[in-house]
Design a protein around this nucleic acid. Structure first.
Length: 445
RNA sequence: CGGAGCGUAGCGCAGCCUGGUAGCGCACCUGCUUCGGGAGCAGGGGGUCGGAGGUUCGAAUCCUCUCGCUCCGACCA
């Protein structure tokens, strides 16, 4: 993409309403525009990041054997009356009446609807296990939305639902989700720690939240410092292997890690003092096992191998896709702007032409651009007629992890500059070498 | 929902107390110079001052109502 033809409304000054760094940078980098309290338009740059995150979530869900689909944002109230949550959910649910005076709602989550789909089409244990998921906009009418997309009323979320014959199978689904989530967050350049949590209005016995450590996090968290040394890495795991998935769960949950909701000071104090950590975290996902909480009242049953009709065991699992955009910025930025991890960057590499209109630099930039595209990458070429300082400031703000700088001085010696946004370190090399290096960095991501 | 604020040009703000017909910086447009970390000079365009009532000869300014937004608290992917 050529910046001169793109839509990137960057702001030099900090918008007054933005209190935290991710919100400030998302506004300044032209990623979002607020339309109402807690409701945002995603401008092209923000939309790109949102889609990258969504894509990673899809890939990891599909890798784990989960099946994508799509449910609507608007739901009939009757489904929620069946589960009893129409009254329980309270003011947070946005209720709508259509022209025929039918009660509708903008879905805050989809347990009821997925259960309705399941009971309509699945009748035998032979169809299990089954895990369906979708990525769809949700609405929760928060009393006080804040922090930009981190606490919006409308938000984009992956929610998945598993249906299993037995509790044991459903707990495997739980473990499998934990593994897939660890992979998902690591691909986004995040460390998200599973912490024992409270089940809230979803209900159920077993639940873990995934928290990204950040000073601006909304939850207070307590953990054993050993847990931050754990990495899932690029392990090859068989998602159908119950023991292997359970082993990962045990590895990542055996050390103390809890949110303030479930924190137990006595247990915490058994950890050696030098390993005790109290910090803040951003919740970016949660997994639940809730058994037959919905299947029983809503009649989601299958016939087992003995001919008996039994309610299925279920769980649900969520990843806050739009919140992750903010969470990643909270975890990865400096005083100049955002620093995107390679996995989610809106463009792979920036190209800065220091002397727009100069035949040599224009030509070299064009060749570098074409070579990057040929390598399967998406570069953002700043071809505006701006001074160097303005171009550098824009690139730093929007946070592309790599930048190739092309100036007349270097070019005279056949060199361009490759700069890491994260370290700020630059290296001079030939244009071909710079392209090759960038291509290599993204290989396998 | 309780408490506290704010709505004046695309963004950031001043003007309001003490009514007299709107201003600054950035951004935008034109020209010249400049050109490796948010350039300089000159010129220019853009605002029914959130909305509705009221007081007044006259309202951005005073009064009433209303809408929106933000912050602190209780709640949340």
């Amino acid at each position: 993409m050529r910046l001169s033809r793109y839509f990137l409304p960057v702001l030099k000054e900090n918008p007054a309403e933005a209190q935290i760094v991710s919100h400030r940078y998302m506004l300044r980098a032209g990623m979002i525009k607020q339309q109402a309290a807690g409701i945002y338009s995603w401008l092209p740059m923000g939309f790109r990041v949102l889609k990258r995150i969504e894509q990673i979530v899809h890939e990891e869900q599909i890798r784990a054997g989960h099946i994508p689909m799509l449910m609507p944002t608007l739901q009939p109230a009757d489904l929620w009356r069946e589960s009893g949550r129409y009254d329980d959910y309270g003011e947070e649910m946005l209720r709508i009446t259509d022209r025929h005076k039918r009660d509708m709602l903008y879905g805050p989550t989809n347990e009821e609807m997925i259960t309705d789909i399941f009971r309509a089409h699945v009748g035998s244990y032979k169809d299990l296990p089954l895990t369906l998921y979708h990525i769809q906009w949700k609405f929760r009418d928060e009393i006080r939305p804040r922090f930009g997309v981190m606490r919006g009323r409308e938000f984009y979320m992956k929610d998945g639902y598993n249906f299993d014959l037995t509790k044991e199978d459903a707990l495997h689904a739980y473990n499998r989700h934990l593994v897939s989530y660890l992979r998902t967050y690591e691909r986004m350049g995040l460390q998200a720690i599973p912490m024992r949590a409270d089940s809230g209005p979803i209900g159920g016995d077993d639940t873990h939240e995934f928290l990204v450590l950040a000073a601006t996090g909304e939850s207070e968290v307590f953990y054993d410092s050993e847990i931050t040394d754990l990495k899932f890495g690029n392990r090859d795991i068989d998602y159908d292997d119950h023991a292997a998935c359970r082993a990962v769960l045990e590895e990542f949950t055996s050390r103390y890690a809890r949110t303030d909701e479930t924190h137990d000071e006595a247990v915490f104090n058994q950890i050696p003092e030098e390993r005790r950590r109290v910090a803040r975290g951003i919740e970016v996902g949660q997994i639940f096992y809730f058994g037959t909480k919905y299947s029983e009242p809503m009649g989601a049953t299958v016939v087992n191998d003995k001919g008996e009709r039994v309610p299925v065991h279920m769980g649900s699992h969520g990843i806050g896709v739009s919140r992750l955009v903010g969470a990643i910025i909270e975890a990865s930025h400096d005083d100049k702007g955002i620093i995107w991890p390679e996995g989610v960057t809106p463009f792979h590499c920036g190209i800065v032409n220091l002397k727009q209109g100069d035949a040599a630099t224009d030509g070299a930039c064009g060749e570098i651009y074409a070579a990057l595209v040929k390598a399967g990458l998406e570069p953002l070429y700043d071809d505006r007629d701006e001074r160097a300082g303005a171009k550098f400031a824009t690139m730093d703000l929007i946070g592309l992890p790599w930048r190739i700088t092309v100036g007349p001085r270097g070019l005279a010696a056949g060199k361009v500059e490759l700069t890491s946004r994260r370290t700020g370190e630059s290296e001079e090399m030939s244009p071909e070498a710079a392209v090759a290096r960038v291509a290599e960095i993204y290989t396998g991501l």
